[in-house]
Amino acid sequence: MQQAATATTLECICCSATFVDSLNLKYTRCEGCRREVSETILKQLGGARFLAMTGAKHLMFCDGNLRFKLSNNFAKDGINFVDIQLTKADLYEVKYSKITHSRTKGPQELIIARDSMVYGDMLRSTFTAATGLYTSL
């Protein structure tokens, strides 16, 4: 027999509010803080101008992360997926990947580059150096 997943009550590391993690996804932030952190990352990258200049799409706001897809064969080294994560030291860790799909093997991720200990004001220049895409005019 399958056991039903039990909900866990957790405390947000940002605002100390308690929230229920009913799917046991091991979140560390409440819904409001997760969205706020991800929106802040997007603003530091340039907001709407960043989206227009890079063609970033399918934005995913996760637990202190911002993930998005880039068009295939648009960025340097075939990078088509970027994951930006806020660390406990209030710095960012950025992972640049190439995701491919095949019928026999399914989706596969090849990590092209990683940048760690990136300050918020360095996100744009780090992104441009890794992908070759400018974030604004």
Rank of each mutant, 00 (worst) to 15 (best):
H58Q: 11
A89N: 09
K76C: 00
L59P: 08
F50R: 12
R34I: 04
I13Y: 08
K105T: 04
A5T: 09
C15H: 08
M53V: 01
K76V: 00
K57M: 04
A5H: 04
D63G: 07
G46N: 12
N72F: 00
V37T: 13
A17N: 06
L86V: 12
R49E: 14
D83H: 09
S16D: 12
A17L: 09
K26M: 13
N72L: 08
R67P: 00
N73L: 11
K95Q: 03
E93W: 03
T104W: 11
A52W: 02
L10T: 02
S22W: 01
K88A: 14
G64D: 08
F19H: 04
D21E: 05
K95S: 07
T28V: 03
Q44W: 10
L86F: 05
D90W: 01
G46M: 13
G78L: 08
I13L: 10
I13G: 06
L70D: 05
K76H: 03
G46Y: 11
R67C: 15
A48W: 02
M60H: 15
A5L: 09
R103T: 02
E11W: 00
L51H: 07
V94I: 15
E31C: 01
T9V: 12
R35M: 12
I84M: 11
T87D: 14
L59Q: 09
K26L: 00
I84E: 04
N73R: 11
N24Y: 05
N72Y: 12
C62S: 13
F19N: 05
L70H: 04
F81R: 10
C14E: 14
G46P: 03
K95W: 06
R67G: 13
F68K: 11
D21H: 06
H58S: 10
T40G: 14
I13T: 14
D21L: 08
L51K: 04
V82T: 12
T18V: 05
N72H: 15
T104D: 06
E93P: 02
R34P: 01
R103H: 00
I79E: 00
D83P: 01
F81L: 02
T54Q: 01
H101V: 11
T104V: 14
T100R: 06
